[in-house]
């Protein structure tokens, strides 16, 4: 290193660069939050952009006029269901693909990630209505599982590849079948991987719009659909829309804040490990 000065300047510049870009990336969220506390008149008046008044009327009307609580509940049930079942089907599959190098199956799962979701809509609707499953959690969970399960497998394959397989062998020596060795020995040490894939799977399900658009009905309407329905309602009520946006994004944002370590691992794990 050639002296302290240049490196200090460099450090300041780096910090400035990082924090400035961070600010730019967060600006839209600040904007949403700000607008959600404004009345329509304040939003329309561009001369007072950053005037803050603690006005909860938008939130109150969102909860009073629309049954947002039940939409939140719906989204939550579907998200949890799709994640849990995704894990039940996905974990053993990922384990087997990792252990026995079933690359063909791995590809098949990848294809599920690739196919444009829109190709499923018409057939699904026809099949699910024949089974009388439209507007039920079952159909929503099944459809969302097509998003969550491949993702879980995708994240878990490299994870399982990295686990020491001697552990399983020693459990086998103790008289356990492979499935029970998997459940009793391998799964407990896969905690971080499972947490990572579950959180992301839940977020994907929570955010899903297209599948719910077709399969949800009044009883199971999830948040994205409810918010979208809210848009074109007789007038453009920006404050209400932004309050609804805050409500829909807040849970995932909070989840992301608390579980950032896992999420970053999930997003980067599969690719960095190679």
């Amino acid at each position: 290193m050639s002296g302290n000065k240049p490196s200090a300047i460099k450090s300041i510049l780096t910090h400035a660069g990082v924090y400035l870009s961070l600010f730019l990336f967060l600006l839209p969220f600040l904007w949403m939050l700000l607008a959600s506390f404004k009345t329509q008149v304040q939003i329309l008046d561009t001369s007072k952009l950053f005037e803050i008044t603690a006005n909860f009327s938008n939130y109150i009307s969102v909860f009073n006029e629309y049954s947002f609580l039940s939409f939140i509940w719906n989204s939550f049930i579907v998200g949890v269901g799709a994640t849990v079942f995704g894990l039940i089907l996905g974990l053993p599959a990922a384990y087997s693909i990792a252990k026995y190098k079933q690359e063909g199956l791995g590809l098949l799962i990848l294809v599920a990630r690739i196919v444009p979701g829109i190709s499923f809509l018409i057939p699904w609707f026809i099949i699910f209505s024949k089974l009388q499953l439209i507007d039920t959690y079952t159909s929503l969970i099944l459809s969302h599982m097509l998003v969550t399960m491949p993702f879980i497998i995708w994240v878990m394959i490299p994870f399982f590849e990295g686990l020491p397989h001697e552990l399983e062998e020693s459990a086998r020596v103790d008289g356990c079948s492979i499935p029970s060795a998997f459940v009793r020995v391998m799964l407990p040490i896969s905690g971080p991987g499972i947490v990572t894939s579950s959180i992301l799977a839940f977020i994907f399900s929570w955010n899903n719009f297209m599948f719910s658009l077709i399969l949800a009905g009044d009883n199971t309407k999830t948040l994205p659909i409810a918010v979208f329905n809210f848009i074109s309602y007789s007038e453009i009520n920006w404050g209400g829309l932004m309050a609804a946006s805050v409500i829909i994004t807040a849970p995932v944002l909070i989840l992301a804040l608390f579980a950032q370590k896992y999420i970053i691992a999930g997003l980067t794990g599969g690719s960095v490990k190679g």
Binding site: S70, W73, N74, I77, G81, V84, F85, I88, T136, Y137, T138, I141, N219, T220
Partner: peptide
């Protein structure tokens, strides 16, 4: 809300099965 609880039970039933 009641409706959704019924639906939930059904789903929980499948869950139990699985």
């Amino acid at each position: 809300m009641k409706k959704s609880l019924v639906g939930f039970k059904k789903t929980a039933g499948y869950l139990a099965l699985a």
